[in-house]
Each structure stands twice: as C-alpha cells, then as structure tokens.
Simulated assay, not measured.
Amino acid sequence: MTIRTNTPHLLDNPPIPVQAKLAAAWTSFMFLYIYVDFFNLYKPGVVDGILNGLVWRFDVSSTLLTIMLASVAIPALMVVLSITLPARVNRATNLVVASLYIPYSVFNAAGATWEWAFFYGLSIGIEVLLLAFILRSAWTWPRTPAVPAGSATTDLRQDLRQ
C-alpha cells in the first residue's frame, strides 16, 4: 500500500553559469537574426531586387556581402567566446558587442513602411530584449571576493619555503 502525501515535489533549479546564459542568449539572437532575414525575402519585390543586383538600396557586391557576413559572424562568434573567454575579458566583450548591436538592430527598420511596422517592431523588439539580457547578465556578473593576504596565506608561503 502506497501512502500519498500532499507535499509538492519541487524541481531542482541549480544556478546557471553566466557564460552559459550569455551563449544561450547569443544563440537565440542568431536564430532570430537569421530568420528575420529569411522571412524578409517573402516581402514583395525583395527577391526581384536581389536578382537585379540590389539589396535594399545597395548594389550587390563582394564588399556588401562581406559586410553582411561580418554582421552575422560577430554574434555567431559571441556564442563561442561567451563560453571560452576568461571572465574579465568575457564581460567586457559582451558589454561592448551587445551595446553596438542595439543601434545596429534598430537601424534595420530604416526605410520600412507602416505596412511592415509590426514585423520590424516585433523582430527588433525581441532582438533588443535579448541584447538587454546580455548586457544585464554581463553587467551583473558575480564577483568572487579576493583572498586578503593575512596570517593564513603567510603561513602557507612559509611552509612552502621550508
């Protein structure tokens, strides 16, 4: 016979390292970033413009494609860098890159018509929220108190010398 209790079973919620949060946020940003560009191809006239050698108002060229590749490669690299860089460099890199990508994301609405306002508003809004999460996570990175040099560390050093 099994006795049932009314105590709820709590799920374990271990802390997630800041590096993992940052990498996950950059990964989400990348998925959104790529899908927004993909769905943009469904706008009337976009594919025709590309086939005629134009992206937005720019001629398709190796320079333009290199700039576009760099704009996608940087967040993609941030996924790896967020996991591998040392904490101090990691924090600074995430603060700088996320700060630069906020205006870059907002610029994507330039030239948009009111007909597409919700599409751009939603996509840019989510991108900015993800970047804000990255900024907050990097800014509030937990600090480990430094061990003060006292008698305990002095004793250890003396033991090593003997």
Rank of each mutant, 00 (worst) to 15 (best):
G150K: 01
R88H: 13
G121F: 00
P17V: 05
D159E: 07
V47L: 10
W114P: 08
W139L: 13
S105W: 02
S82M: 07
E115C: 03
V36A: 11
M68H: 09
Y101F: 13
R4C: 00
T113R: 15
T27W: 05
P103A: 11
L54A: 06
L130D: 02
W26F: 03
G53S: 07
R57G: 15
S61H: 02
L77I: 03
A110I: 08
G125P: 06
V18F: 02
W141P: 04
A23M: 13
G45S: 12
T63L: 11
K43W: 15
T84Q: 07
T66V: 06
N94V: 06
G49Y: 00
A25R: 03
L122V: 15
I3R: 08
P86R: 13
S61K: 01
P15T: 08
I126A: 08
F118T: 14
P75T: 11
R136G: 02
A146W: 08
Y35P: 02
L77R: 01
M30S: 12
V55N: 13
L41V: 00
L69I: 10
I34W: 06
T113Y: 11
F31V: 15
V96D: 11
V47S: 04
F29V: 00
I3V: 13
D12A: 15
L69E: 06
G49A: 12
N90S: 12
M30P: 02
L130F: 09
F39H: 12
R136D: 03
R4P: 01
Y120C: 01
L122R: 03
T153A: 13
Y42H: 12
G45R: 11
I74H: 00
T154C: 03
T144R: 09
D59R: 14
V46G: 04
A138Y: 10
K21D: 00
F58V: 04
I50S: 02
V80W: 12
F31R: 06
D59A: 15
T140M: 07
T63S: 12
A112M: 15
W141E: 14
L81D: 04
E127V: 01
L135P: 02
I124S: 08
S82A: 10
L100Y: 03
Q162I: 05
G45L: 13
W139S: 14
D159T: 05
N90T: 08
R136C: 01
N90M: 11
L160W: 07
F29D: 01
D48T: 09
V80T: 10
V128P: 05
V18Y: 01
S62D: 14
I124L: 05
P145C: 05
F133I: 08
I16E: 09
P142R: 03
W116V: 09
W141F: 12
A138T: 11
L69D: 07
T27K: 01
D48R: 09
N108T: 05
V97K: 01
L41N: 01
L156R: 08
V47G: 04
A20E: 07
V128W: 07
D37N: 13
L122D: 01
M78H: 00
P8T: 10
